[in-house]
Computed example of a mutant assay.
Amino acid sequence: MSAKPRLLLINALRHAGGSYALRPTEGTREQMVMDYDNVASLLAEVEWDVHPGAPATHGDWGVETLEEFMIVGANRLPLVREGCESGRYDAIVLLGGGDPGFAEAREIGRRHGIPVTSCGHAQMHVASMVGHRFGIIDISEKHNVQMARLVVEYRFTERCTGIRNLDYPLPRPTRSDRPSIASEKAKALAGETCSMLEAAFTAAEAAIQEDGAEVLMLGCSAAYWMQPFLQRRLNEAGWDIPVLEGYRCAIEQAKLLARLGLDASGLMLPKDPPARSRRRRLV
């Protein structure tokens, strides 16, 4: 590894553009990273590139259904393989909430000895480092399904207090009458009253008082912009609780694993063929 870890950030997908896109589909690498200002200091410590993501084939909108997560995950696996085979990177970071394609991407990384990290997975691990139990603040009923699946898959069922739904789904043709996440974000950045942020604060207090959460994480990357605002609101209300978002956690986890020279256990993700096979695998 070079003096500075070399990271490749891969976006979940690339929209054709239009009203459903939440970030530019082309431009500088900084423009390709949503809410770049929140992670700029972390990326200053590494060498990095960003891929805009594979073209969206499920439809030109965000990802919420299980079918969409599977399609988007499969579409970006060739990008992971290409990044690993290039020999240019020490770690790969999968951007986007819901972790589409993470398990499979991690298997590809394992073949090349390259760690692959993702937003939900990294947040849950960081949350478990700083508190006994964490709650998830998420955007919609459909997205909640994917986040619940990840809690089970990553074996955090005893650590997760539950998922609080804000009911601010991603924009798509069937939701033209719903509040826009982009407009809510613009209000918050302008210092105006933001209904989505108010809903997040209410959900956060409920997660603390009713569910027993000691750490909070944001489920969807479209909501990661809320992290500094929600952290401030909770601190002002007297709550000494960390609020996590996925990009920062996934980037820091990638840097850590690269510096430790670790990717994934060969018994969890065996190579083909494995150096040695067990007679029994526990679940």
Rank of each mutant, 00 (worst) to 15 (best):
M196C: 12
R178W: 15
V130R: 01
G191A: 04
P169L: 02
P171Q: 02
E184N: 06
C160K: 11
A200D: 08
L189R: 02
A213V: 06
S180T: 03
R178I: 08
H132G: 12
E198R: 00
E210Q: 14
T161K: 10
L218C: 13
R155Q: 15
E214Y: 06
S140M: 04
A207P: 09
L218E: 04
D99T: 02
H121Q: 14
R164P: 03
A186N: 00
T161A: 13
T174A: 11
R111W: 13
A199I: 04
R155N: 14
V215K: 03
G109W: 05
V151A: 11
R106W: 09
G109E: 08
G120H: 05
G109H: 08
A199S: 11
R133L: 05
L166G: 06
T202Q: 14
I114Y: 09
A188N: 04
E184R: 09
H143C: 07
G191D: 08
A207N: 03
D99E: 03
Y154H: 12
A127L: 10
G96T: 06
L216M: 01
D177L: 10
E198H: 00
Q123P: 07
T193K: 10
R133M: 06
G96Y: 06
T161L: 13
S128T: 12
V215R: 07
E158F: 11
Q209I: 05
T174P: 01
H112K: 13
L166Y: 10
V126G: 00
P179D: 00
A213C: 06
